[in-house]
């Protein structure tokens, strides 16, 4: 029973991380880079229009950060729930 409770909390926490990170993913890839691209294009930094930059450069950097943040959060979660594979 105790195991089951722990797993439930673990899974809920995981889903919470997922929903936050995937929302960022959606905003950057689909809203900034595509849907509202033209409004963001009115901002120019150096030679880049912002919407265009996100579509061809920025999104990719954000994607990398998202994965590494997820890895960090999950490794921490695994430790705190002692579901670390090395010990398990």
């Amino acid at each position: 029973m105790k195991h089951q409770e722990k797993h439930k909390i673990y899974w809920r926490k995981n889903l919470q991380y997922l929903s936050i990170l995937l929302s960022i993913w959606f905003v950057v890839a689909f809203l900034i880079s595509i849907v509202f691209r033209e409004s963001f294009d009115s901002i120019q930094i150096a030679g880049f229009k912002l919407g265009f930059w996100f579509a061809q450069q920025g999104s990719i950097y954000v994607f990398i950060v998202l994965i590494f943040v997820y890895v960090y959060l999950m490794n921490k979660l695994d430790k705190s729930f002692n579901s670390d594979e090395d010990k398990g």
Binding site: L18, W25, A29, I34, S59, I60, F63, L66, Y70, V71
Partner: peptide, 14 residues
């Protein structure tokens, strides 16, 4: 660019 990189976020997370 977006499609072939953004897919990895789905892979890693889901």
């Amino acid at each position: 660019l977006l499609g072939w990189t953004g897919g990895y976020v789905l892979l890693a997370l889901l």
